[in-house]
Design a protein around this nucleic acid. Sequence first.
DNA 1: TCAATAATAGTAATGATTACTAATATTGAT
DNA 2: ATCAATATTAGTAATCATTACTATTATTGA
Lengths: 131, 131
Amino acid sequence: MTHKRSRQRELIKAFLMTRRDHPTADVVYSRVRQEMPNISLGTVYRNLTLLSELGEIQRLRLGDGTDHFDADTSPHNHFICNHCKAVIDLEMESIDSIDKVAAAGFQGEIEGHVTYFYGSCPACAEHSQIS
Amino acid sequence: MTHKRSRQRELIKAFLMTRRDHPTADVVYSRVRQEMPNISLGTVYRNLTLLSELGEIQRLRLGDGTDHFDADTSPHNHFICNHCKAVIDLEMESIDSIDKVAAAGFQGEIEGHVTYFYGSCPACAEHSQIS
DNA sequence: TCAATAATAGTAATGATTACTAATATTGAT
DNA sequence: ATCAATATTAGTAATCATTACTATTATTGA
């Protein structure tokens, strides 16, 4: 099942690469529609799924009911602001060693983990401060 | 907004306390219905939400599209089998120190994290083995 | 026993996502 | 360039988990 190119898929990928804020499918749709007014929402979903299966983008299941997408496929961790719900990349040293901690005493096999950090983002932390 | 008792809520809580497998709302519903045949699905959802807000149970958002529930509110980590999708409690030493790793160099405030481990559960790892 | 009101059953509505289908676009070969 | 094969699309309908709505019922403290 080889795949053909499509203007739609390339536009979606290109748009996602300009963003650092991990948009949802709906945000991708409304923004990409400015360039291609009758692209359909189904096309956006299908291509986001395909691109993430191909490993060209990353799907983030934050547990907030809507998936987010990230064109940065390099391994990195994410932070979600409890207040404004912003999703932010974290630059931090690897915590992959927690897999070994989990594996100790576990009969099955640990193959990986998903971690999200929560708290107040820089902007929200600033605003809540007594200055 | 004080709350009154209800047979339904107590039944839901009691059922959940007998389980170690982190059932979904639907599973709770179908099982609890054996004891109380005309309980409604909405009642199950409402009470699972209320109980987790009260801190009596824990809601697990595994990112698989359906929330799971756990009557064990003590801090512990979870493992999801990539094959059979079973959700299993992990007995492991604390990894809460990863919050400090994330906080280093981050301008906002890290208040906590959510982590899920993935891989092959004991049963599935066994079956896939060349014996 | 009673009045106040929280909780329920049953059903409708919502929101994210997927499935379906006839029409269109892309591709490699003629 | 043309063509046939087929992947992809637009548009819409369907699905699935969850929440909202409302008239009725259950719980509670007086």
